[in-house]
Design a protein around this nucleic acid. Sequence first.
DNA 1: TATTAGAATAAGAATAGTTCTCATTCTCAA
DNA 2: TTGAGAATGAGAACTATTCTTATTCTAATA
Lengths: 133, 133
Amino acid sequence: MSDRVSTRQRRLLLEILRETGSHLSAKELFRQAVQRDPRISLASVYRNLHLFEELGLVDGKRLDRNCCYYEVKRSRQHYDLVCNCCGRVTEFESPLIEKLVGEVQERTAFEVTKAVLYLEGYCKQCEGQSKKP
Amino acid sequence: MSDRVSTRQRRLLLEILRETGSHLSAKELFRQAVQRDPRISLASVYRNLHLFEELGLVDGKRLDRNCCYYEVKRSRQHYDLVCNCCGRVTEFESPLIEKLVGEVQERTAFEVTKAVLYLEGYCKQCEGQSKKP
DNA sequence: TATTAGAATAAGAATAGTTCTCATTCTCAA
DNA sequence: TTGAGAATGAGAACTATTCTTATTCTAATA
């Protein structure tokens, strides 16, 4: 696996990820990519998303049962709040997570490389709703 | 959906979950269940795992790309450390998580119903290894 | 105990996200 | 420009999960 990101497809995918900013599923990323380059294949999308993750360019998160969502890695770590009702994703930041990771590393001799954290619940608009909309 | 848990299959599944204690995939749970009752079907395993989750008897966690892992809910909340190398899952507890959830609820008016948190990395034994074993 | 309506089940088909395969195409160092 | 190795496209394959439907079970009631 090379360190370079130098193919037409990779450039296009990163471009879309950077422009979009928010969470994209592989399918949606593919949909957008096809519009600009009809020759691109879904396999390349998956292949390169994995590559980008390995290179640390992109973060992949599984926010629901179905699929992963990807976004370019940002300088400030953030975590997601996923509404069970409307599906909207909002973000939050907190130093408590770094603190938690530190605590774990000290107490357990486990070398943490990635923290998977998100919270499910109901957003302001959907509060008081029951399980399904 | 009833509140009762009164079928042969449900009793068996809960029994296995309780005996095992640790994380079981649907497939593995099915494998064990078939040994005791060859007539049980995989569909029942999934159906009832969802039911148990709704009833608050069981926790389902997606610790890797592939599938969910289930275990009976315990009184003390815990979170998992998943080794990228050997796959072993160890557990940890920390009050920081409750603190974090509280912070989110205060700051964002988001009503949290579930916190999904686990850490990936390398356990003591596998430390220093590169990505794949 | 027998009846019975509604709930749960078994079996396997269907679905969907993801990964794999391999022949073809591209990239880039020389 | 060339050639070796890397990346791609197309679609088949895979896998976890969900759905469908005829059948069976459960448990409240007679």
